[in-house]
Amino acid sequence: MNGLGNVFNLLAYAAAAVFILGFLYKVIVYFKTPSPLNIPTTPGPKTSGGVVMRLIPEILFFRSLLKGGAAEKILWFGGWVFHVCFLLIVLRHLRYFTYPVPGFVMSFQQIGIWAGLIFPLALLILIVRRFTNDRLATISLFADYFVLLLIIGIGLTGILLKYFMRTSLVEVKAFILGLVTFSPAPMPDSTMFTIHFLLVLVLLVYFPFSKLMHAWGVLVAPTRAQADNPREVRHMTPWA
């Protein structure tokens, strides 16, 4: 095991810890912060089962975005394609984390590769709209461009690794499996892989402290997650 390998192993553990603990911390804070009043956006479901049915299409299909005009249709397309590709890419990458590789992960290999190619294009839509529309340009912050560029960077380095600057998959897998099994292995000898890997760590560390927490927030925003049932249930305010 070389010394540099150890540094990367440590960085990976640190990033994973920040991501997991940071995410959990936010989940707990959101859970513990009370909703003093019943504020679902109406018309809304009257039961918690109905709330689930309200949230599923929001999460799977970004339903509310589809209520908007042309700008939101473009956003919907870019955003939805991006999220689906991201999911497929993650599923494909599970092959590096598992041994033996489960069958379902293998079945995502080809579609995962396509997703990886479409991925930067979807992100391109998301970034271009930010400076071609005067309203978007006004509201966009450094953080918005930063995270898009970061993810584009991850995608492009991934494509380079796959098609142009191939590295030893055996070494990559040994390294990742080493991380997963807490028996550190050396970092593969590939600058491109190192960049790809570090960018992912940056994303993990950044995630819980950023707007990326919408991934959890979409589930707990009281305007959608509450049932419209003030007549049936007395909604209590813990602090009043």
Binding site: S64, L75, G79, N133, K211, M213, G217, V218
Partner: peptide, 9 residues
């Protein structure tokens, strides 16, 4: 305050 992604919708 945390989760707005400034999508512009």
């Amino acid at each position: 305050l945390d989760i707005c992604v400034r999508c512009g919708a």
